[in-house]
Design a protein around this nucleic acid. Structure first.
Lengths: 357, 357
DNA sequence: CCTGTTTACTAGATCGATCTAATACGAGTA
DNA sequence: TACTCGTATTAGATCGATCTAGTAAACAGG
């Protein structure tokens, strides 16, 4: 554990070398205007010569501010989060904050441990994509400690922290309406868990659109599963082996949709032609897979930027009431829903659309 | 910037509340064996009651050790790095290290700034996937300061730090040999930049295999480009419009291969049938795309684990000579190279293989 | 020439922990 | 009883910076 045998160069030593006081050297470090160019250069030269490295940790201890923010997410292999990170990183860099990273793999226990670790590291704020179903008390306590928390993508019961997310209900409606417009009447909703607030939102939109179109909701067509490729494989198998299988599926996210399409191909069902598929998130893979996936774009990068902005505002002490940023999802129509369902459609141009490859 | 208006609970206050000294409270924190269970419980109870949070930053300042490690990579949208992070994170968690993250987007300037930031944060070590062509002096200096650096994936000229990577030459050979065995004699190598040590390695393997098979190297068939989807799109267009186009392409990485296959479909060329494609890395998308991509597996997760292991050993002060861990790549044959090239092949079973969807 | 104000710099306390060296105390031994 | 010895605990210095309050010099105005 111990390291750094070599004695570090301290500001004290720099000051001595330059023939000034600790305080002066410190002021030079921080670019104080009340320092003569002559002494400033002298100190800077000494720093250069001695190979001085600023100790931000010591500085933060005394000045009681922090130059780090914590980022806690489920996992990075999920493209949604890595995209989110791009936006976040870019914005935080600008205000001189460094990111401390933790991944929960959706374990509430790990999440608690990570939150503690972040606190111990004196982060200036935390951006959290909470483990579904995790209690909100620990997070409330952190907020009360004066450390701002921004929730991202997944909502919790707390009324103390900011939240950035998308309108899942609208997203669910967009997807379901699109499938209904293509002539489908048996539409499944597969993947994800009802524990997730986002799942409940998308389901609500799905229910709403169906009932608006006068379609009865068949609970057999709703299948929960992990929000992964494998989850998609399992769920699609389940609904397609029903006595009265769906002609379209709305998937909780793109990973599930991709898994579902892979399994369909294996089963000899042509996705986009025999069964329409709509995903959610618009991850890069969505436009790569064949057929290209129709999906709901949730602009993860933009969510990152917004989260950073909210956190930044709060770190600067603007203590307003909790803010909610709800981004509007957009329907991106691609090949996986290009063929209209033959039934109930008078003259459909969409069915004549050709599919690539 | 300033925050934490509420006075933090300090070990001092805990000690006072429990009726012991600072030192005793500190010993309790660290689980010293020479503490009576009675006083231990008393202190623990006080901590609980006052809502004490350990200040790891202050502790690190005094004890001169660090509980963070820096991770500097190009970007996270690249699945290779997020996979790598999974392995790394898992291993570092176990030894109580927290990750400070930085992404360079392959800018040498950003890399330098990130390295400084990491030093200022007193990281115990750095894991670095260096920007290609960046100078090695700054990194050498960090090593000399006693902070171990593990290079990952991309090699630099320095002889001071550990390195984890794969055998790129072997990978290049595996890919090229496979295509030669399928009957191809005009094989392109597309994407990536010769600045990258990994590019040079793969190219070397490609050259070696070709010359071993008695095939002349045609410099028109080697195209450099960014290592992205778009790079693949551009490069494949270039080589396929040659007067004598290749029948097979070996791509610097999977992103390029996927971009190339997308463009081929657009051009009416069937990847895997008209032109064989081999990628590199085996990212998750490789087994999702149609046709499924033949590729060279570089086990990014394993690389993460190895990097963490090396760093850990060095942080514990075992100051041995620089270590090099070179992982063996593996050829993963899928659909994109399933059809053998008709010329030069007596009786080929592979050509009869069917393609899904 | 004296006073008041600004400017450039500094000594010493401080952040919240750990480390060192010294303490008090009970048990064991002569 | 006195003397060691080991154990549990502690006071005070310390890590490397910042902050507070203050000093000495330069300069202006009456």
């Amino acid at each position: 554990m111990k390291q750094e045998k070599k004695l570090n160069v301290t500001l004290q030593q720099v000051a001595k070398h330059a023939g000034v006081s600790r305080s002066t050297a410190s002021l030079v470090m921080r670019g104080s205007p009340s320092i003569t160019p002559a002494t400033r250069d002298k100190v800077l030269a000494s720093m250069q010569e001695l190979g001085y490295v600023y100790d931000r940790v010591a500085a933060n201890l005394r000045s009681k501010d922090s130059s780090t923010v914590g980022l806690i997410i489920m996992e990075l292999s999920n493209t949604f989060y890595s995209e989110l990170l791009v936006g976040l990183h870019h914005k935080l860099d600008k205000c001189g904050k460094t990111i401390i990273l933790g991944t929960t793999f959706d374990s509430a226990e790990i999440q608690d441990r990570l939150l503690s670790t972040m606190l111990e590291h004196r982060v200036a704020g935390i951006i959290l994509s909470a483990v579904p179903g995790s209690p909100s008390e620990p997070i409330d306590q952190i907020c009360k400690l004066g450390i701002p928390v921004v929730l991202i993508g997944r909502k919790l019961d707390t009324k103390l922290c900011d939240y950035v997310g998308i309108d899942n209900v609208l997203g669910g409606q967009l997807a379901t309406n699109h499938l209904i417009e293509q002539g489908h009447r048996r539409i499944a909703f597969i993947g994800g868990y009802s524990l997730l607030s986002s799942w409940r939102g998308r389901k609500e939109g799905y229910d709403f659109s169906l009932s608006l179109a006068g379609i009865d909701i068949d609970s057999d067509l709703v299948v929960e599963s992990p929000a992964t490729l494998q989850g998609g494989v399992d769920s699609i198998q389940k609904v397609l082996s029903l006595p009265n299988p769906p002609t379209a599926v709305f998937c909780y996210n793109d990973s599930i949709a991709i898994g579902a399409m892979m399994k369909m191909k294996e089963m000899g069902v042509i996705p986009g032609q025999d069964v329409a598929v709509v995903g959610f998130d618009d991850i890069p893979e969505a436009s790569i897979i064949t057929p290209k996936l129709t999906t709901i774009s949730s602009a993860p990068r933009l969510m990152g930027v917004h989260a950073a902005r909210l956190l930044q505002a709060r770190m600067e002490g603007l203590s307003t009431k909790p803010q909610y940023v709800i981004l509007q999802p957009e329907l991106v129509v691609r090949e996986s829903s290009a063929y209209a369902h033959p039934e109930n459609l008078p003259g459909n141009a969409a069915a004549k659309k050709t599919r690539l490859a």
